[in-house]
């Protein structure tokens, strides 16, 4: 396929390694601190907003692509980036509009698919 010839395999590798390493940080937190998964998610998203706000996270994204944007830190950095961009365009109003605006796709998808899944699925026991 033509599409596969356009893939940047070196970026793929960096994406895999950086994405994996961000998850390893989460795993160490889970095993060492007994934090619940909700707290881990909050920690990562807040950290992402701070790093994004300081402009540091962009370097990770430039280096690793989706390895940085797919983890929740990327979601957080995106919120910060959106807020800053909107402030540049429309001033203080942008601080309120920007974050949710860029994240709207993800949030709406999660709500919509979540509702859809709940209509179709039945709770089941996990056999673990």
């Amino acid at each position: 396929m033509e599409f596969f010839q356009t893939i940047d395999w070196s970026l793929m590798l960096r994406c895999f390694i950086v994405g994996g390493l961000i998850c390893v940080i989460g795993q160490i937190l889970i095993d060492k601190t007994k934090l619940t998964s909700a707290r881990i998610l909050v920690l990562f998203v807040t950290l992402g907003v701070i790093l994004g706000g300081l402009g540091l996270y962009q370097y990770v994204i430039d280096f690793a692509g989706c390895g940085a944007t797919v983890p929740l830190t990327g979601f957080g950095a995106n919120l910060a980036k959106g807020a800053i961009t909107e402030v540049q365009n429309s001033g203080l109003l942008g601080a309120f509009v920007g974050g949710v605006k860029v994240a709207a796709g993800g949030i709406a998808a999660a709500i919509f698919f979540g509702y859809l899944a709940s209509i179709m699925a039945k709770p089941k026991i996990k056999k673990q």
């Binding site: 889970i30 881990i40 929740l72 993800g106």
Partner: peptide, 8 residues
């Protein structure tokens, strides 16, 4: 564990 939790 965190491998599926931390990504979106």
């Amino acid at each position: 564990g965190a491998g599926s939790l931390v990504p979106i």
